[in-house]
Amino acid sequence: MQPLQLADRVFTSRLFTGTGKFGSVSVMTEALRASGTELVTVALKRVHADDPGDEMLAGLSGIPLLPNTSGVRNAREAVFAAQMAREALETHWIKLEIHPDPRYLLPDPIETLAAAEELARLGFVVLPYVHADPVLCKRLEEAGAAAVMPLAAPIGSNKGLKTFDFLEIIIAQSRVPVVVDAGLGAPSHAAAAMEMGADAVLVNTAIAVSEDPVRMAQAFRMAVEAGRMAWEARLAPVVSHAVASSPLTAFLED
């Protein structure tokens, strides 16, 4: 498989993963190691003595972190969160997510674009989580986003590629990597996204909430590799009539 170039880094794994919703830090660690991921998202929260954050960071040791801005409501708060994340985790990479509505967690495009412009100006590597809106994705690219992360379906819904047709347009148009994020519920969804030409996928819930997160992480790893390999090999064309795979020459005498 071709490696993925994103900003100034090269990834051999095209499976980005989240760290949320795992039953324990040890399961999370084992699953993420099994996934082969080279980029994992983490969130920020107010410091709390009982939070297993330190244990989590120890478990993730060696895997590059992608802090997110989850919890912010507008561009101003997102820029602040990114600056705090940079200070806390010593990375200028940021997953920009602004979704004030708690029911559907759909990203606010206007605040996201404003924040992306500002964060790019401040030298961040900005990966914005957005709706599968091809126009917005181009605007984000022009604003300096290092990649775009359009959603397949609402966060945590496991519904799969509900935005398929629009993801195709985004992938066709984009000059920055396209990372399909949110809603991928099964390895087959991830494989389909990769076959479509996505540069990477980000999966969290589908792995973390499965009955066996470690095996599910392996399944996603294989699906992403299979989908990418199929994309690189170029799928055979779809036609509306049968095309024989075996010779039709009659060889039985009557």
Binding site: T19, V42, A43, L44, R46, H48, L57
Partner: peptide
């Protein structure tokens, strides 16, 4: 004064 730390998230 705001003090934040990393935690699990997607």
């Amino acid at each position: 004064i705001t003090i934040l730390q990393a935690t699990q998230g997607g």
